[in-house]
């Protein structure tokens, strides 16, 4: 039997996901790999939210899809506490996945492509229940209950997705994810396709549901402002690796990795008086995940880079000797640099 601390629901260790680059006419030849996720470890505690943030191509979505085994991992373990005990998702048999996934569900980014336009809402929300053999009499009632839970009228259940706005569609997606009473929800950019005035509705819904149902979230976002309201702990990713992971306030107020600080400085806050540092934002663009990087992946863009940064891959180590879990950074000079964050003033 696999073991995990009682309050941990998901423990990912050394997770790697490489996608082969193939070429060839009849016989495919592997030319190299895209290292979408490269040696990532984190834990998610029951009832809490871990945020995975980063720019496009940093591997955050791949992590979510690998954790739920939509992709098979290249290496690593994914320990998950299901209702039948702790399982390793990385090694779970295909036939067991269906049972395990009752406890782990996903919310998608695009409210349009995630609902089959040819099915009424009723069928969409009931799909997980039907797959698990729940009889019609039971799931009809449950769908009504779920729709109410996410703030939609149960009378709407015979309508088709095209009659709903983006925000309402996203609620339907949430209802579907909750159908089997999962304990962990992987939310992949659930609000980034929505308009600002609607985005807040869905964010608040996620917060309310977490309080009501004791849900745990793995929340994936590129939007640092959104993450601040939802996540207890935040992991910043760059080119397939976590460069900094910390409790939310520490990360925003005292970033220790230059990339985190750069990200925070780049966000234009909706306050003309707030500081915005576009001029000292990092230069250049994100590199390719195919290259064999010897040193720190961020070093070529880092304003503080020293020759040694190009020599070795920095490990994700604690920067706080008193509370080692509170903040870890993958920068050789994490303790020496004093980087600007977000001031609460």
């Amino acid at each position: 039997m696999l073991q995990m601390p009682d309050d941990v629901i998901l423990q990912v260790t050394g997770l790697k996901k490489y996608f082969p680059i193939e070429s060839g006419f009849l016989l495919k030849k592997v030319l190299g790999h895209v290292k979408a996720v490269d040696d990532v470890s984190f834990t998610v505690r029951k009832g809490k939210t871990l945020g995975l943030v980063g720019e496009s191509g940093c591997g955050k979505t791949t992590i979510a899809r690998t954790v739920i085994r939509a992709y098979d991992p290249t290496a690593g373990t994914i320990l998950f506490r299901s209702r039948d005990g702790v399982v390793d998702m990385a090694k779970a048999e295909k036939k067991d996945l269906k049972r395990i996934r009752r406890d782990m569900q996903m919310i998608f980014q695009d409210p349009y492509s995630s609902l089959n336009p040819r099915m009424p809402i009723m069928e969409i929300v009931a799909e997980p229940m039907k797959a698990h053999g729940v009889p019609k009499s039971v799931y009809e009632e449950r769908v009504a209950e779920l729709l109410k839970l996410v703030g939609l009228r149960p009378e709407y259940m015979r309508r088709f997705p095209h009659s709903f706005s983006g925000g309402q569609r996203q609620r339907i997606g949430v209802a579907r994810a909750l159908a089997l009473n999962p304990s962990l929800i992987l939310a992949d950019e659930p609000v980034s396709a929505l308009d600002v005035s609607v985005q807040a509705q869905v964010l608040n819904l996620l917060l309310d549901l977490q309080e009501q149902l004791g849900l745990t979230y793995l929340f994936i976002s590129h939007d640092l402002s959104v993450v601040r309201y939802l996540c207890d702990q935040v992991a910043v990713m760059y080119l397939g690796r976590i460069v900094e992971i910390a409790d939310v306030d520490r990360l925003y107020e005292n970033p220790t990795h230059p990339y985190t600080s750069a990200l925070l400085g780049a966000v234009p806050d909706a306050n003309p008086k707030a500081s915005w540092r576009p001029h000292d934002v990092v230069k250049g663009e994100i590199g390719k995940a195919t290259a064999d990087i010897k040193g720190c992946a961020f070093a070529p863009r880092c304003p503080f880079a020293k020759p040694e940064c190009l020599e070795q891959v920095p490990e994700l180590i604690s920067v706080d000797p008193v509370n080692p879990e509170a903040q870890k950074s993958a920068c050789l000079f994490a303790r020496e640099l004093s980087l600007p964050g977000v001031s609460t003033a």
Binding site: V196, Y229, V267
Partner: peptide, 12 residues
């Protein structure tokens, strides 16, 4: 309705 960098965890 705009989330801000200076927000608080759990704030609506």
């Amino acid at each position: 309705s705009i989330p801000k960098l200076t927000g608080r965890l759990g704030e609506r």
